[in-house]
Simulated assay, not measured.
Amino acid sequence: MFGGGGMNPRKMKQMMKQMGIDVTELDAEEVVIRTGDEELVFSDVQVTRMDAQGQETYQVVGDPEHREAGGAAGAVEAGEEAAEAEESTESGGIPDEDVELVAQRAGVGKDAAREALEDADGDLAAAIASLE
């Protein structure tokens, strides 16, 4: 990981702890990575989560099975995701999560935040800047 070569694993763990890096092995049964073309399915997998200064990184080790994208299970899940996205978006086309974020960051109500987002064509930073 850090070029430890033949370093003692206990010493490596101690050094990582000193740097504020927490490493956890996850008991994962399966990991699926979906791209535009294919799915990579890791069935016999080792997953490690590394938390460094609040940033989580996952390492997946295993031999994936390659599948074409758009299988039956993928189509069902894609349909569910689209339905959820549609539910979380009001008629203005601005996601509720964006409205809440702008309202919280700018310290204004949701109506003002939605209006600022609409004026900024959905640009979060521009909407917050216009309200501050």
Rank of each mutant, 00 (worst) to 15 (best):
A73I: 13
A75Q: 14
S88W: 08
E87I: 05
S88P: 06
E68C: 03
E56G: 04
Q55R: 15
G71T: 03
R67P: 00
E86R: 15
V60P: 00
G79V: 00
V61I: 14
E84K: 15
A82Q: 12
E90V: 07
E77L: 15
E80V: 13
E65T: 14
Q59P: 04
S88A: 13
E81T: 11
E90L: 13
G54M: 09
T89E: 01
H66V: 11
A73R: 06
T89A: 09
D63L: 10
H66G: 06
T89I: 13
G74D: 03
D63I: 07
S91H: 11
A78W: 04
E68I: 03
E68V: 09
H66E: 11
E81L: 14
V60D: 00
A85P: 08
V76Q: 09
T89G: 04
A83I: 05
G79F: 01
V61N: 11
G62D: 08
A75F: 04
E87P: 02
Y58P: 04
V60M: 03
G79R: 04
A83S: 10
E90R: 15
E80K: 09
A83Y: 02
S91Y: 14
A85R: 09
S88Y: 11
T89V: 11
Y58E: 15
T57E: 00
E84Y: 06
A69E: 07
G62Y: 02
E77Q: 13
E90N: 15
G74M: 07
R67W: 01
Q55G: 00
A73C: 04
V76A: 10
G74H: 09
Y58N: 06
